[in-house]
Design a protein around this nucleic acid. Structure first.
Lengths: 182, 182
DNA sequence: ACGAATTTATATCGGAACGATATATGCTCG
DNA sequence: CGAGCATATATCGTTCCGATATAAATTCGT
């Protein structure tokens, strides 16, 4: 699923600017689900407008820069649904934290432990954001509750595991040396 | 953390070819931690060799194409440790499945349910691969056990949540319509 | 009160990464 | 005996990211 398709999806919930779409990735229900940079979002919206899948409207603001608000066209809505029905790809994770843990024997124990603290803090932040999204009266649809609940379950389980097992990081590997020579 | 750095990390466990590195992302401990395509791995290894961070060795094989086996140099090892100590970025997730659930109201219920079945199957596969990695006598280091256990905890929690709450998908949203005008 | 930093807002450019494709070889299965 | 699959590397066009530029207003510290 490319960025253009994701933008179409977000716009099914109502019109938005590029900046607001980026905020949705960081704060709301989509935190931990998808992410994209400004460098992808703005060109994506421009191309979608060229293809007639969204329409742009310039909105003048007082006390803030003007913004370009995009709204879905019927063709855009149809395109999004078609791409969803066509199938989905497996989830992709890129966890620098897990990488750091796998290679924890190569770094000072204090560094590894600080990475755990850092990751716990990020996880708590993400949980808090999901709680806010869960309370939001605009998120009462069962499928939204499901997606939020799934994110919560995974984060919670990861947090509990880290708290219970963080003592494993920093332990030297006691290799039994089966042959006994050494 | 770019692909070059990840390749350096994998090579701290021993020499490997580009093809074998790709397999590590799919089968082993690194499943669900990181991923990269051949189109990134091969150029990355070429550049690392140019920089003197790895050395390449051509290995002739009978009944198979020759392979280029790469091994870490001391400079490569130092570079990897330095980049790990320099700090890590937050985890990134790209879940087309969660996207599909968020927009489940736009697709046929049978499609949404089949996506859940598909995702459950993928999760079970991933859990099985982690179990194999956990049993591997080469994975007895506590930090490896920690990384594998963390992955297991998250996958397990997600699976249990999906099984317990999948009935939420397909329920029509009963909007109370506070104003009453429709 | 005044400059600094932050927030809101869009655009672009170079480089990194992906996905598809090409090439080559041998094995397995029907 | 041909089709398809596993092993193995390489490359190319497209997409995407990260950094940077621009701009206007608000907030914050001193």
């Amino acid at each position: 699923m490319d960025i253009k398709t994701v933008c179409l999806g977000l716009l099914t919930f109502g019109e938005a600017s590029g900046y607001e779409i980026k905020k949705l990735f960081e704060d709301g229900t989509f935190n931990g689900v998808f992410d994209a940079s400004f460098g992808s979002i703005y060109p994506a919206l421009t191309r979608l407008a060229e293809e007639g899948l969204v329409i742009a409207r310039e909105e003048e603001q007082h006390g803030r820069p003007d913004k370009k608000v995009y709204a879905l066209t019927p063709a855009g809505h149809a395109r999004f649904v078609a791409s969803l029905v066509a199938g989905i790809q497996p989830d992709r994770v890129r966890s620098e934290f897990s990488m750091a843990m796998i290679f924890a024997h190569l770094l000072p124990e204090a560094t590894a432990q600080s990475y755990i603290d850092q990751h716990l803090a990020e996880t708590r932040d993400a949980l808090r954001r999901l709680d806010v999204a869960d309370q939001d009266p605009g998120s009462q649809m069962p499928n939204l509750k499901f997606a939020i609940g799934l994110g919560r379950a995974r984060l919670q389980a990861g947090m509990e595991f880290m708290e219970r097992h963080r003592h494993m990081i920093g332990l030297a590997a006691v290799a039994p040396a089966p042959g006994g020579q050494g």
